[in-house]
Every structure is written in C-alpha cells, then in structure tokens.
Design a protein around this nucleic acid. Structure first.
Lengths: 230, 230
DNA sequence: CGTATCGTTGACATTCCTCAAGGGATGTGG
DNA sequence: CCACATCCCTTGAGGAATGTCAACGATACG
C-alpha cells in the first residue's frame, strides 16, 4: 500500500497529521483490505492485534451479555479508526455492516509509530475524546429516554452523521438510507425489534416520516421530530 | 502550588509522565482548590474553561434531558482528570459528590503545555481510551440489563473501583461505603430510586448483602452476586 | 416461482415507573 | 435530653410502557 497520498480519507483520518515522508513510512506498514458485510474483524476478548482506518463502509462495535443479548456501543464510519492502541484486548466485537474497505496495521508496529509521532497521538486523542462525548450522550439516551424519544433521536443523529453521497448538502439532509436493518436499530437503542418497528410505524402514521423502502427514511417534519426526541 | 513532588496522586495521575523540571512548570500553572460536596464545577454547555486532576474525593458527570431527567455518565475518583482538553464545550455537568480536592489548570495553558509534552498527551490518550471502554460497557448495562442485573453489576464494580482506604487489599474487598445515596445510584443505573431500593432490599432478604447503614454495603455472597449481574 | 429473510401487527405478560404513605436516621432548638 | 423537623429511604398499590410469543406479510434472491 503506497498511495496514501491519493487516499479517499486523506485529510479526514488520523493520518492527516502526517507529512508525506511520514505517510510513506506508515503506508509501508499498512495494507488495504476489503471486508464483506457481516464479516467480523475483532472478537470480544481478542488480543486486538490490529488497528485500522476505515476507508469506506460502516461497521458496528458490539458488546454482548452472557446470554446473547447485544448492545451496539459504537458505529464506525469512513475516516474513523478501529482498534485499541496500546496493548489492551478489545472489549467489543467489530463487525462490518456494509461491504467495507480498511487500511489495516499491525498493532505493535502502529503503537511504535504512534509513540514516535506526537501529531498522530494528538489526532487520536481528539478523536477519542469526541467519541467519549458521543458515548456519554448515548448513555443518557439508553438510561433515560422513552422508546419514542430514542427512535426520534436516532433518526436525527443519523441524518447528521451518515456519510453524504456525491455532492449533497450535509446538514439539511432529510432523506437517507440507513446502513442497517430493524434489529440493528433496536440493538443501538436498547429496544426490541418489535418496539422499534411500532415506533416507526406510528411516526409514519402521524406524518412525521416516510419509509419508501426497508432502509430508506425521509423525515417530513424535522421540527416535530426534534420535539419528540426530547 | 509548588509541591507536586509530594502530591498524593503523584505517580497515578497523568502528571506521572513528567520529569521534575516539567512538573515544576506545570505546578506553576495550577492551583489547588477544595470543593464541598454538592458543588458544581462545570455546567453542561459551558465553555469548559478548566482542566483538573482530582486529588481527593468523588465527582459525577451528569447529562440531563430537557425535562430534568438525569443520567450520571461518569464517576471520577482521585487521580482521574476532569475537563475537555482542546477546546470543546463541556457536554456534561461536573458535580462533587463528596468534599474534594482538585488541582486546577486554565484550559488554554494546559492545552499549550500538553501540545509541548507528548508524554502527557500519551497518558491522556490512554486514560481516555480506558474511559471510553468503561462508558461502552456501561452502555450495554443501560440498554440491555434488567434492574437486578444492573444493581448487582453496580455493586461489583464499586467493590473494585472504589478507592481503598488505608492498607486494605484492593481486589478481595467485600465491604465498602458508597459515596452516594439511592437517588444517585438510580441515576447511574437508569432506574428510579424506588426500583433501586427494592432491588437492594430483596438482595438483603436473600442473604446476598448486608446494609449496615445507608451508605454501607457488605457483599456476603460474591459468587451469587456475579451470577445475578448477568 | 419458491424460499429465506426481514419487517409488521396483534394479544398477552412482565417489568418498571408513578403516586402515595409511612418509617428511620440525623440535626437543631428549646 | 427531648421534641420536632427534615431528609432520605422503604414499602405498597396500581398503571403504563415495553418485552415476549406467535402469526402473518412483504421483499429480496436464487
């Protein structure tokens, strides 16, 4: 992998902190890999031997209870990174939700490289802080919001966070295609698939939404949706 | 504040990464401050003008919904740090739960110092990664566990994380005093105070617990508790 | 066209929350 | 030292929200 300079996420990923010499060095250590939707990269309790940048696709981070109940604890988009730098085992499973393309590094090499490149660590730190804020907001949603509020919050957040395809305005977007099905929405919100489905059906009945196909969503009344989100 | 070398959390806080010259420089920037239980240091939406190390005491990070429902999204113990380095507003309220002692820095000075001291950023990064893992585990608890499982998990985690007083073995501890009341336990677990109380009462009735006083807990059957925790 | 997967809907069960009352500890003033 | 107030916790009864189980419908795919 030598063409980091033409990378699709160059400028957005943590590598943006590197100059071209450093980039060449890092590029030498990494390899590009495609993974199919459904493929699991890292298992819960694994020694987490890899760090990766996401070039394309959407992945989920999953924590499972002993009896199989699952909670999605993070969603990873293009330009985000995956893995647990500095030697701890992965506390969650990482699974691709769509066909994805990654830029993978051996963890120990990556760690060593990071130690030697403070700018990279700085980027990592900022990203991790942002991710922590997001996780904490989500804790409030999981602990304190009703099913309706959860679904409304989820849709609004997806409208903002979902990667924009070719030349749409990012903020005002109101129609989008979710990269996941009902069960996965339920696993994100800490609900059952049935409750999730009923909430969506009701929102459609109330004219807040259109659901043109299984995974497409059109928010018709953003204002009302924001009120529902609590 | 000049006696960082004799600091109670020297060696455990992020400052452990600094040599004595650097420590002196940082010590120059900071000031010690005591805060009373109940005092709020940082408000949700604040510009988060400070970074602090906790020398003593326990603080909570709280996210509130628009209507006042509260979720505790983090608990901060001695040697942990508070605040949002690198310029974002605080997404949560920070309130002392016990009388506490802090070592406070102006954020912009701290940021500048951190930029110049990669070791410090490295420590910050490691801590933030650990905290993120903890937050994500808690997301699973909030989204997928029952009231009983939540309370049991909470007690076990407190037995491990609560600071140890004078010369007790850290791991095997089974009796401890919680630094918070029932309402705050409820706010940590995403439950109501009544449900929390009922769970504790039931565990006591089943011989899993003793509750010698309002805030004291003695785990009598750790094994059974671990099973209840799911 | 048939089959598998996913989503929706309904009936019912359960958990947890809400509202209300009472109990126990702690602190204060008399 | 006692009476009283306050705060926090516990307990109970009833209800609402969500989960469970089951059947059916729709969509995608071979």
């Amino acid at each position: 992998m030598s063409d980091c300079s033409s990378c699709t996420v160059r400028g957005r990923a943590i590598c943006a902190s590197l100059d071209s010499a450093e980039l060449a060095e890092l590029g030498h250590m990494g390899r590009r890999q495609r993974v199919k939707a459904g493929h699991t990269l890292l298992w819960e309790g694994d020694d987490a031997p890899l760090i990766a940048n996401v070039l394309r696709g959407v992945l989920k981070l999953v924590v499972a209870a002993t009896d199989g109940r699952e909670q999605i604890v993070g969603i990873v988009f293009a330009s985000d990174f995956i893995g647990r730098p500095f030697g701890k085992e992965s506390p969650y499973r990482v699974t691709a939700m769509t066909d994805s393309e990654l830029c993978i590094y051996n963890r120990s090499s990556f760690d060593a490289f990071a130690e030697a490149h403070p700018h990279l660590q700085h980027k990592l730190l900022r990203r991790t802080l942002d991710e922590l804020d997001r996780a904490r907001y989500w804790m409030m949603l999981l602990g304190r919001k009703s099913a309706t509020e959860k679904v409304a919050s989820f849709l609004l957040q997806m409208a903002e966070r979902l990667p924009v395809e070719a030349g749409e305005p990012a903020r005002s977007r109101t129609a989008f295609e979710l990269p996941f099905g009902r069960q996965q929405i339920a696993d994100i919100l800490g609900l059952t698939i049935e409750t999730t489905s009923r909430q969506l059906t009701r929102m459609r009945a109330n004219g807040l939404l259109d659901l043109p196909s299984r995974r497409e969503v059109v928010i018709r009344d953003r204002r009302a949706m924001a009120i529902l989100a609590g």
